[in-house]
Nucleic acid binder design. Structure first.
Length: 112
DNA sequence: GCGCTTATCGCAC
DNA sequence: GTGCGATAAGCGC
């Protein structure tokens, strides 16, 4: 259920908001941006995701350039839908949900 | 190169 | 204090 995001989770959303459209970041990169060494903690915030349409959680992928999950579903039809959405932004994924253009992957989250 | 297991971090119960 | 989660990295084969 939608729990109130803690300061840590807010940092995740904030860092994610710094990611420009057409670009994606991995849990590791996002975690490094906020000072977290575990992607699971990031996934916790994403899973909570009270700002689903506001926070581009679909711009966050696994370290292996994979989409991973979306909107609570680790893998499902939602992924295909978001995959197409990302393609519209300039991020292309294959049928397996893998990132085709690694160029779209941000090396790190831009600081303010 | 691919697959499985362990480790890690934060949050909720 | 224990368990869960949208992962990451390491080790083995």
């Amino acid at each position: 259920m939608e729990r109130e995001p803690t300061e840590f989770e807010s940092s995740v959303y904030e860092a994610l908001c710094r990611v420009p459209a057409g670009k994606v970041v991995t849990y590791k990169i996002l975690g490094d941006a906020i000072g977290c060494g575990s992607g699971r903690a990031i996934g916790n915030a994403m899973r909570n995701n009270p700002y689903a349409p506001e926070v581009p959680c679909h711009r966050v992928i696994l370290s292996n350039h994979k989409i991973g999950g979306f909107m609570g579903d680790v893998i499902g039809d939602k992924i295909e839908k978001k995959r197409d959405l990302l393609e519209k932004e300039g991020v292309n994924f294959d049928d397996e949900g893998n990132l085709l253009d690694a160029n779209c992957l941000l090396a790190s989250v831009p600081s303010e």
